[in-house]
Simulated scan of single mutants.
Amino acid sequence: MKALAALALALLAGACAAPGAVAPAVTSRPVVPYTSAGLERVIGQDEAGLVTLFGKPDADIREGAARKLQFAGPICVLDAYLYPKGSEAPRVTYLDAREPDGSTIDRASCVAALVRRDGGK
C-alpha cells in the first residue's frame, strides 16, 4: 500500500510540470563578422608603419620569413602577421584580435582602441 501511495504521489508531482516545457536555450556570445572593413590603415603596413600607428610591439615572433607583431592594450590584443612578397619588406597580410580574456572582438574596433593607447600616434 505504501508503494502504491508513493507511486501515486510521484505521478501527481510529475503532472505539475507544464506540458511541452522546453529547457531554456543556452546563449553564447554573438559571432563577430569577419570582414576587412576598418582595417585599411593596417593591412599592407610594414613594421615601421605599425610602430608609428600603435607604438612598440608587446611581442615580436619570427618563424622563417613570417613575423607576428603583437600589440596589447586594456581593451584587446591584436596580432599582425607580416609576410614578405618577393624581395619586398614583410607587410601585414592578416590580423587577429581578441579581448584580454580571449573572447572575440571585432578587429576594426581593436585597431581603433589600440591607436588611442599610450604610445600610439
Results as ranks from 00 to 15, higher is better:
D60A: 04
V115R: 04
C16L: 02
L9G: 05
L95I: 09
G20C: 02
A59S: 13
V22Y: 01
A13W: 07
A108Y: 10
P24V: 02
D96S: 00
E63N: 10
R41S: 11
I61R: 11
R62S: 12
V111E: 13
G64N: 07
G86Y: 01
A13E: 09
R117W: 05
L11W: 07
S87D: 09
A48N: 14
V115W: 02
V26N: 01
T52D: 15
C16W: 01
M1W: 09
T27A: 14
E40C: 07
A15P: 00
E63L: 09
G86M: 01
R91E: 10
K2R: 07
L95T: 11
K56G: 08
A10R: 00
G49V: 06
L7F: 12
I75S: 04
A80K: 09
D79H: 14
G55N: 03
K56I: 12
A48Q: 15
T35Y: 10
A66D: 04
D118P: 06
Q45G: 13
R41V: 08
P30D: 15
S36C: 09
P100T: 01
I43K: 15
A37V: 14
S28D: 11
A21Q: 07
D79V: 12
K68C: 07
A59G: 10
G49Q: 12
G14Y: 04
I43Q: 15
A113V: 12
G120K: 04
L78P: 14
V51A: 06
A8P: 03
A21F: 10
A108M: 11
K85H: 08
E88F: 00
A97E: 05
V111D: 13
Y94H: 07
G86S: 01
G49N: 10
A65S: 10
L50W: 05
A113F: 12
R117F: 06
R62V: 13
G49H: 12
T27R: 12
L114P: 06
A89F: 07
L95R: 10
A23E: 01
K85Q: 08
A89S: 12
E47R: 15
P30E: 15
L50K: 08
S109P: 13
T27F: 13
